[in-house]
């Protein structure tokens, strides 16, 4: 990996100006595989994710994507390449197909059914009201909707936090499948078990700064007990 791959953050400060949440964050997030961001509540995980597709801008510091400054890329173009799945899936009025047409106004039924199959969503749901979907179905629909923009990165902000175990595992499998197909996944999680099932790389954030970054095995061997606990390293005790 070089600095030109994926996201490169340098001395990033972000959050409310009076009380920044992220302080002096410098890290390179790879352009492949699944990177799981882990940390205690309020440590700045979601704040960091929102910077990566410019739903927010940093107060200071620099973020680059594939070598280009993020603020030099048109926000709409960036967001179609860096898609986001939120914790609570934002459903737009109308059917599943109507939701797809927000992302791609020209989507036809064949393409819609193809993308539904891709995310493991029953094609019979295409004309169902989005509000009538179960939590797991709604989240899959949001992933499918995001895939219609043909993104290179999928940001996922605790996308399974409100789902039962079966739905959680299904969404995790989908993330792994997308990563294997070449779409980098950056996934925020509180769940240590999930982190250990899913992560190729782990970014541990504590108190608004980077506590550790690397492969899971590296963080398991960290000298920092907080990091070992965050990643659920064997013998480290419960996750915080």
């Amino acid at each position: 990996m070089t600095d030109a791959d994926g996201f490169s953050l340098r001395s990033v400060v972000a959050g409310p100006p009076a009380e920044p949440i992220l302080c002096d964050v410098s890290v390179d997030i790879p352009a492949s595989g699944v990177t799981v961001i882990v940390g205690p509540s309020g440590s700045g995980k979601s704040t960091l994710l929102r910077l990566l597709n410019r739903l927010d801008d940093p107060l200071s510091g620099e973020i680059r994507w594939h070598g280009d400054r993020l603020d030099a890329i048109a926000p709409q173009a960036l967001r179609r390449q860096v898609a986001t799945v939120f914790q609570r899936p934002p459903l737009f009025p109308g059917s599943v197909l109507d939701n797809f047409r927000v992302a791609d106004p020209g989507v036809d039924t064949d393409r819609a059914l193809h993308v539904m199959e891709h995310v493991g969503l029953d094609g019979a749901l295409l004309h169902r009201e989005a509000s009538a979907l179960s939590g797991g179905e709604a989240q899959r629909m949001c992933v499918a909707r995001a895939l219609l923009t043909r993104p290179r990165v999928l940001l996922a902000d605790e996308p399974t936090a409100a789902l039962d175990l079966d739905a959680r595992l299904a969404i995790e499998a989908l993330a792994r499948q997308l990563a294997d197909e070449g779409i980098a996944v950056v996934w925020v999680s509180h769940d240590t078990d999930q982190l250990r099932r899913l992560a190729d790389h782990v970014l541990a954030i504590v108190g608004g700064t980077v506590a550790a970054f690397g492969h899971l095995a590296d963080l398991d061997a960290s000298e920092d007990a907080v990091v070992r606990r965050l990643v659920g390293a064997p013998g480290a005790g419960g996750a915080s």
């Binding site: 179609r80 737009f92 927000v102």
Partner: peptide
């Protein structure tokens, strides 16, 4: 959340 959902899709 819904507005940012649309923004996140590149609208």
């Amino acid at each position: 959340a819904v507005i940012e959902g649309r923004l996140a899709l590149g609208l």
